[in-house]
Write a protein that binds this DNA or RNA. Structure first.
Lengths: 193, 193
DNA sequence: CAGAACCGTTGATAAATGTCAACGGTTTTT
DNA sequence: AAAAACCGTTGACATTTATCAACGGTTCTG
C-alpha cells in the first residue's frame, strides 16, 4: 500500500529515506478507499485532506448555475488530489472531487504534512519540486487554453496525456478541455481524415 | 531602490531580515533599467534572470504562426517577471517579456537565488508562500477561462485587477483574456447599458 | 509642427462552438 | 433477463467570437 508513495518520494526528492522516516510516513498517512462516484470533497466543504492516489482515477470539477460540470483536473495513480486554496485558506471549496473508478488513496491533513516536513527533509525537497513542476504544467495549460483552437488543444492533450484518454470517457475529456462533448466528437471525426 | 524589495520580503515572510541579510540581498540583486518596448526576455533565449519590478509595467506573451501575440502575464510594481520553465529546465523560452512602460527591476539568476535561499531563511519562506499564492491564482484563472464566457471573464478580471485595467490598453487586456480587441470592445459596450 | 504609430470603435461577414433533440449500442444495475 | 443509465454520434439550428476593413481621435516621435 505505501510502496508507491515511498517510491514516489524517493524518486522526486532523490534523497533516500531512512527507515525511521519511512515508518513515520506510514504512521501518518491514512489509507482511504473510495467506491466509484464517491466524493472525496464536496463543494462548500473545507478541503481537509490531500490524498496520494495509489490506485484508481478521480476528477475535480465545479458546477455552474445551469448545473453543468466543468472539469478542472483529472487524476490517476501517483497524482495528488485536493483543493489547495481551500486547504490553505480554510475557505469552503468551489469544487467537487470524486472517484471515477474505485480508488485507493493515502490521505494526510495539511497540519500533519507541515509537521512531517519539519522532520523529513526529503519531503520539503519533494514539495518544492512538485510545486515547480506544477507551476510549469499550469503555465503550459493556461497558455494552450488562451492561444490554441479546440482542435489543437485536444491534439496536444492527447499527445501529452495518452493515459487520460484511455481512462476517461470523451465527454469528460471534452469538459476538461473546455468544450462540449459534441464539439469534441466532431473534432475527432474531422481529424481522422 | 531596494526598499520595495526588502519590504516585500519582510511582508511575505513575516520574518524580519537582519541587516547582514539585507546587505547580502542588496549585494546580489542587480538593478536593471528597461525603456518602454525593450526586451527582458526574447523567444528562443534561455531565461537567465528573474526580476522584481520596482517601478514600471511589463508583459509576457507568445507569438503564434500568424504573428498574433498571446499575452499570458501582465506585471506591475511588486511582481516578479520571468519564465520559470526556461529558467529551471534551461530550455529556450517560448515567450517574450518586454517593458510596456519604462521599468526598473532588480534581477537575480536562479543560481544566485538558490544560494541566497541557503543563507536567508526568510527567502525560503517567502518563496514557499509565493508558490502557494501563485498556484491558487493560476487555478482560479484556469477555472475561469474554462468555465466562463468572455463577458464574465472580463468582469471578474476588472473586479480583481483594477490596477491592470488602468495601466494597460484594452487590446492588451483582450489578449490576456484570450479574446480579440473587437470582441472586448463590444462586450464593454454591451455591459454599459 | 507634421507625419507616423497607436488605440478604440463599428459594420459586414465568416468561422467556431454551443444547444437541443434524437438514435443505437454498450455497460451497469436490479 | 429486463430495465436503466451511460456513451458517442449526428442533424438542425442558434449563439458567440473571429476576421477584415475602415474611421477618427489621440499620442508619440523626429
Amino acid at each position: 500500500m505505501y510502496k508507491n508513495l515511498l517510491a514516489y518520494i524517493n524518486q522526486y526528492a532523490n534523497l533516500p529515506l531512512t527507515s525511521e522516516e519511512e515508518s513515520l510516513i506510514e504512521a501518518t498517512f491514512q489509507p482511504k478507499k473510495l467506491r466509484k462516484k464517491q466524493y472525496f470533497l464536496q463543494e462548500g466543504d473545507v478541503c481537509k485532506y490531500v490524498g496520494f492516489i495509489v490506485k484508481g482515477a478521480m476528477r475535480q470539477y465545479s458546477v455552474d448555475d445551469k448545473g453543468v460540470e466543468h472539469i478542472v483536473h483529472l487524476y490517476i495513480e501517483n497524482y495528488w488530489a485536493g483543493d489547495r486554496e481551500s486547504s490553505i485558506m480554510l475557505t469552503p471549496s468551489n469544487y467537487n472531487i470524486d472517484a471515477w473508478e474505485d480508488t485507493e488513496m493515502l490521505i494526510i491533513t495539511r497540519a500533519e504534512m507541515l509537521d512531517l516536513m519539519e522532520k523529513i527533509p526529503a519531503l520539503v525537497k519533494m514539495i518544492r519540486l512538485m510545486d515547480e513542476r506544477n507551476a510549469i504544467a499550469n503555465q503550459r495549460r493556461l497558455s494552450s487554453t488562451i492561444s490554441n483552437t479546440a482542435e489543437k488543444r485536444y491534439e496536444e492533450f492527447a499527445d501529452n496525456h495518452p493515459q487520460f484518454i484511455q481512462r476517461f470517457p470523451q465527454h469528460i475529456i471534452a469538459s476538461y478541455l473546455g468544450i462540449t462533448k459534441e464539439t469534441l466528437s466532431r473534432i475527432r471525426k474531422q481529424a481522422m481524415k
